[in-house]
Design a protein around this nucleic acid. Structure first.
Lengths: 210, 210
DNA sequence: TCATTTTCTGACCGCACGGCCAAAAATTAG
DNA sequence: CTAATTTTTGGCCGTGCGGTCAGAAAATGA
């Protein structure tokens, strides 16, 4: 039972409530990854969790809030994981390669979660029909990647190129690495990641002047 | 009214029927691109076309056939356009650059169609729930790109690398170029395409041995 | 012109959706 | 132990879906 509010006025969630929300989110992830966004109904999610549909409505303001909660959690995981690994890299090339290899490493253990994330990311829409996420929501990721590329250009490691185009292509290539591996589990994810790191290393390399 | 059958037994479609199917497909494209796959109902498509919903059922075996028809037509357009432009390229690098620049050129005049194609490509599922398209359906495109890369390696233009990874990344980078430009109409698509061509030119370049 | 065929209308059907809610069950506080 | 509160159940609601179909309208052939 709720004892006290958080200092910011938000109600402190009880242990039961937090546990239930986590359970529902886990089931939502499984169902979305397996059935796709369009078929992932509250009935299916509730059935997977072994609860009544009304429990979801009780713990979440609506289906949209549930979907956004999934995105928040899964995305935060990736970012936290990647940032921790990149902290001790000093060169732009080191950062670049570590980002690709780290994300691949994270992918291996979170295939279902990332599939669900992608499904929601590409399909969730606001009540007015406009996309809730989509490529505009990748702006923060693009800026992070751009900073790596800019650093490399400033230190002389990298050649001159459009860092926005490089960031967009980088992000897309990492996504497609996951998509391909998801569809072909026998595909060597680590080898793909190393090849991809090589690809961008060559793509950015400053060549000796003639 | 149907006069005679095609030699292969298929009924020859009357002019009226072909015109009506084309009209329905055009409306389907507009609605899918605007509202997204999930909201693109037969009612919405019919309304956009100014006809009754039953007309769609009369001319198409079902919603799935309509969606697949859209994919067939839009995809065939891209392939035809790209192949025509690549026919007179002799070097692997020429083929590589032409593919990227040609697809960008095609994109500029077909934003809506390509948005609809992508929506269906990522969302259409079979009755049993498995994806109808998805990355497995890109196998043909991957093979085409791989052939360019293999040619470049054989002629000595390109360095040694995994052509599958390069093809996957190539395809994804082109897709993200479209996605980004779709979301940011002020983005210079041609400049992006040239930068992307440069990116893959550098990524594949064989460097002089030390 | 009339008969036949094609094309279309618009209502209906069963199904599924997200959300709501009265009441039961479970938990907690006193 | 009882009262209060939280959590859950399971049915109901309005809405919208894809598909069907009787009959009307339009087009075509004789």
């Amino acid at each position: 039972m709720r004892s006290e509010n958080e200092p910011d006025g938000q109600k402190k969630r009880s242990f039961i409530e937090q546990a239930r929300r986590a359970q529902i989110i886990d089931s939502a992830i499984e169902v979305i990854a397996e059935a796709g966004f369009g078929k992932a109904s509250l009935a299916l999610i509730a059935k997977h969790a072994g609860i009544s549909k009304g429990v979801i409505s009780y713990h979440f303001a609506g289906k949209d809030e549930l979907m956004e909660e999934v995105v928040d959690q899964v995305y935060a995981d990736v970012v936290t994981f990647a940032l921790a690994r990149m902290a001790d890299q000093e060169t732009a090339l080191g950062l670049l390669r570590t980002q690709i290899l780290t994300v691949a490493e994270h992918m291996r253990g979170h295939r279902t979660r990332l599939k669900a994330l992608n499904e929601i990311f590409h399909n969730l829409r606001r009540p007015d029909g406009t996309p809730r996420y989509g490529i505009e929501s990748s702006e923060e990721l693009f800026r992070s990647l751009e900073q790596i590329y800019l650093l490399g250009q400033q230190t002389g490691e990298f050649r001159e190129f459009d860092i926005r185009v490089m960031a967009i292509s980088h992000s897309a290539s990492v996504d497609s690495m996951f998509a391909y591996w998801s569809a072909h589990p026998e595909h060597d994810l680590d080898a793909h990641a190393r090849e991809l790191a090589d690809l961008f290393e060559h793509a950015t390399r400053r060549e000796p002047s003639s």
